[in-house]
Write a protein that binds this DNA or RNA. Structure first.
Length: 386
DNA sequence: TCTGGGGTCCTAGGACCC
DNA sequence: TCTGGGGTCCTAGGACCC
């Protein structure tokens, strides 16, 4: 059965959402001027999280350093992000999308797919998509793009056409006209590295990719990826709209220093902080982890990482931190400047570890009490913020 | 201009087992 | 004495997404 899928994408999400809040507070609409959402504007290392359309027209891009954006436009308006508010805006637009179909997959905080096959029977999909987009705008005050297609890939590609506040279709029979002329980089899953590899081989457009024979493509990008790229470049994608929310497979946290650090005390403090955050998150979600990983990033952005398997899954901060400290000692000489440090856990389970040892670590009770106090303190801090 | 933070998936090589 | 092939797990590294 041929399907009808919508992809709904909030235009410059974080910027639009911040603007909605500011307008409600009687402040000027930052969507109308060059503006960006960023981290701490005083931090030389903060980057652009979202840019307004006037800012984008000046060449300011997401993920660009704020210092660079300021050079492009000295009068650029900088605003801080507000995660709690973003979550509320996200819930608002998702719940409006749900009115149209229960077959909804949230793809990120500001994007979702809905399967509209049933709802569109005897109805014009574009009219319905337009109605959905207008409903979001009038009820919530921000705009979205809706991409309409016969699968998720085409719907997502379509929502990326002209912005903002637009509905676009990309049916299979429109692929040669609407999708093939685009550069390979515009195809989902083709990032910087893959683009470099493809263009070096003379593959510039999605059409070039669609018509490339599999043998060459496999040599360029590997078997599995080649298959996917070939299907997608031809507009084919049979992946379903996944309505189940998948459980997390890993948790991680990282810190970038305002300048590169060389003092082991500074590195250890950061490692301690990220260990507390990650361990708190897995306890909150009732997970235990069997693998601990950590990494350091150097001046030149090269990364050294290390991971280790635990004999038993754990959610104890001290155990996770001590593994990370041990691994840090194995990859760092204690002198080379470090730009960033990160810690992650994976191989997650909800099962409680069976205590095999007859001689329980006497420190363990202390560690657990420490974690209990930490979690309580976090909970109090969150309550205070509400 | 000098590059955040949080995820998922894939690949390749080595260890180990049958 | 020297050899094979397949499967699985682990680790390091790298690509992509928002």
């Amino acid at each position: 059965m041929s399907r009808i899928i919508f992809h709904i994408d909030v235009n410059s999400a974080f910027l639009s959402w911040t603007a909605v809040k500011m307008v409600m507070e009687g402040k000027p609409d930052i969507r109308l001027v060059p503006s960006v959402v960023s981290g701490d504007p005083n931090d030389r290392r903060s980057i652009v999280t979202a840019a307004s359309i006037p800012a984008k027209k000046l060449g300011i891009k997401t993920a660009q350093p704020v210092s660079m954006a300021l050079r492009t436009c000295p009068s650029l308006v900088l605003v801080r992000g507000d995660w709690e508010w973003y979550k509320r805006c996200s819930e608002g637009f998702i719940s409006i999308c749900r009115r149209y179909s229960p077959l909804l997959q949230q793809f990120s905080i500001d994007e979702c797919f809905i399967d509209m096959t049933l709802r569109c029977q005897g109805q014009d999909p574009v009219a319905l998509a337009t109605q959905l987009k207008d409903e979001i705008k009038s009820e919530l005050g921000f705009t979205v793009n809706v991409g309409v297609g016969s699968n998720k890939l085409l719907a997502k590609m379509a929502s990326d056409f002209e912005k903002p506040d637009k509905v676009h279709t990309l049916w299979e029979n429109e692929v040669p006209q609407k999708m093939w002329p685009l550069g390979v980089r515009d195809l989902l899953w083709v990032g910087k590295k893959t683009e470099e590899r493809l263009t070096a081989y003379g593959i510039h457009t999605i059409e070039d990719l669609a018509k490339l024979e599999m043998g060459s493509l496999t040599r360029l990008v590997g078997h599995k990826f080649a298959q996917q790229l070939h299907e997608n470049a031809n507009g084919r994608d049979d992946s379903p709209v996944e309505t189940e929310v998948a459980e997390a497979k890993s948790y991680s946290a990282e810190r970038t220093f305002s300048r590169d650090y060389t003092d082991p005390k500074d590195i250890d403090r950061a490692l301690f902080n990220v260990a507390c955050i990650v361990a708190h998150r897995i306890r909150r979600d009732d997970f235990r982890a069997s693998t601990v990983s950590m990494f350091i990033k150097h001046k030149d952005f090269s990364v050294q990482q290390k991971q280790t398997s635990l004999s038993q899954p754990t959610d104890v901060t001290a155990i996770i931190l001590n593994e990370a400290r041990r691994m840090l000692g194995e990859i760092w000489d204690g002198q080379t400047p470090i730009r960033q440090v990160g810690l992650g856990v994976s191989k997650l389970t909800h099962e409680n570890a069976v205590q095999m040892s007859l001689f329980e670590d006497p420190k363990l009770e202390y560690y657990r009490e420490w974690d209990r106090q930490y979690d309580e303190q976090r909970a109090r801090a969150e309550d205070a913020r509400q």
